[in-house]
């Protein structure tokens, strides 16, 4: 069982390497969106520092959203997905592998880039560390929940516009706890509770998302 998981992650990573422009697009989008806010508002360092947690989290969320359709769209179009659906292995296991690969390719780079953007916003020391740690714990949940949305909108007309409407409301808890952790850290408060809540979101979506996604994919394939 673990073997097929490794195999599918390897395949998706290989595909991502061969299509590295797609990965770069998401990263550039993240940087651009995060850089727009200081241009549009007051560039005062104090204001920016206060803005940082929310802006960086929302930017990461939008960048993640941008990459979601790619999880299944390619496999759906070329018939790989129906082969997965009739494979002896459980579809939810294959889906879990694909979600993990999506996180590695589309979300992990955002986490790694976040400290740089954080510095731009004047975040330093503990709040910066907390930002990275919160993104590290929160983005897997974004990938997991996003996969359900991507599967539900697969093949349907207007899926592109429907996906954000479907998924963004479900991202709200992660956004609140993730940005909240950074805000609390800036105020010198305890952040443990935020991380516990982020962890709870992750575990809950880890249990529900692969199964729900598999069900949605089967419906899309009919």
């Amino acid at each position: 069982m673990a073997a097929i998981l490794i195999e599918i992650v390897r395949r998706d990573l290989l595909l991502a390497v061969r299509r590295s422009a797609d990965v770069a697009t998401v990263l550039i989008f993240f940087v651009v969106v995060a850089s727009l806010f200081p241009l549009a508002g007051n560039p005062d360092p104090v204001v920016l520092r206060n803005l940082a947690p929310g802006v960086l989290w929302v930017s990461a969320l939008l960048a993640c959203l941008l990459s979601l359709p790619r999880i299944f769209a390619g496999d759906y179009a070329d018939g790989s997905l129906e082969q997965m659906a009739i494979a002896p292995q459980p579809l939810s296991l294959l889906v879990l592998g694909k979600i993990f690969a999506h996180w590695l390719v589309s979300a992990l780079p955002l986490v790694l880039l976040a400290p740089l953007l954080g510095l731009q916003y004047g975040l330093q020391g503990e709040p910066l560390l907390v930002l990275v740690a919160a993104l590290l714990l929160g983005t897997p949940t974004l990938s997991l929940i996003g996969a359900i949305g991507a599967a539900l909108t697969l093949g349907g007309r207007g899926g592109g516009a429907l996906l954000p409407v479907l998924v963004l409301p479900l991202y709200i808890p992660v956004l609140i706890f993730g940005a909240g952790a950074v805000v609390a850290s800036q105020a010198g408060l305890e952040v443990r509770a935020y991380f516990l809540l982020l962890g709870a979101c992750f575990l809950l979506s880890l249990v529900v998302a692969p199964w729900a996604t598999a069900v949605a994919l089967r419906i899309a394939l009919e």
Partner: peptide
Amino acid sequence: RLDSLFISHLNGLKDDLSVSENLRFATYLA
């Protein structure tokens, strides 16, 4: 699932993988 094999009019191949990479994954999956 183990006893049956289905090849649809969609070939189930990834354009960005080589022929042997595709075949290896397809058989692994099956």
